[in-house]
């Protein structure tokens, strides 16, 4: 992923070495999760097993402006008759910039009646959230929304 500054050392010019060194410093100064987490798309691919994800049939409600990222109410609703032959099997929610890409995976079925779930999630910063629904025919549908998370001015000193 990143060039290894130690390996680059003997092989390249000074400028490139400096650049690599700076990258190395940046990498070690970031928290471990900042370099370790999969991207949003990678996380979705893991969920779908690489299948195509189509736009539509899913609605993700996320408030555009969030007062506190510790509890953001979301609702995901997928269009489906929810019968034995044609229903939503799973609904997954992913985020772009938290330490981990996964938020939750819900398992539904014909006994759900409707493919609607609500929960409250954490958003570490302003970012994109994606909901993906897996249908009983094996197709995947998704919707994305973004939220701006404002930071409180007066916070308690737990850090």
């Amino acid at each position: 992923m990143r060039e290894d500054p130690l390996r680059v050392h003997g092989l390249v010019g000074r400028r490139q070495f400096l650049r690599a060194g700076m990258t190395g410093l940046l990498v070690i100064s970031l928290p471990r999760w900042a370099v370790a987490r999969p991207s949003l798309d990678e996380a979705i691919r893991t969920f779908t097993g690489g299948a195509d994800v189509l736009d539509g049939r899913v609605r993700l409600d996320l408030p555009p402006l969030v007062e506190n990222g510790n509890a953001v109410g979301i609702t995901v609703a997928a269009e489906s008759p929810m019968t034995a032959d044609d229903h939503v099997r799973r609904i997954a929610v992913f985020n772009e910039k938290n330490p981990e890409a996964n938020v939750a995976v819900f398992r539904l079925g014909p006994r759900s009646g409707r493919a609607t779930v609500s929960t409250r999630i954490r958003l570490a910063t302003s970012q994109v959230v994606v909901a993906v629904a897996e249908m009983s025919d094996g197709s995947f549908w998704s919707s994305r929304a973004s939220a701006i998370v404002t930071l409180a001015a007066c916070i308690e000193d737990l850090s």
């Binding site: 938290n98 819900f106 014909p110 006994r111 759900s112 779930v117 609500s118 929960t119």
Partner: peptide, 23 residues
């Protein structure tokens, strides 16, 4: 009979709240 389930990750808020429907 299990009719609904969820796998939760650390991005779910403290005091987790989940709403869903059943027939």
């Amino acid at each position: 009979e299990e009719v609904f389930s969820a796998d939760l990750f650390p991005a779910v808020s403290a005091n987790p709240f989940i709403a869903f429907t059943l027939v």
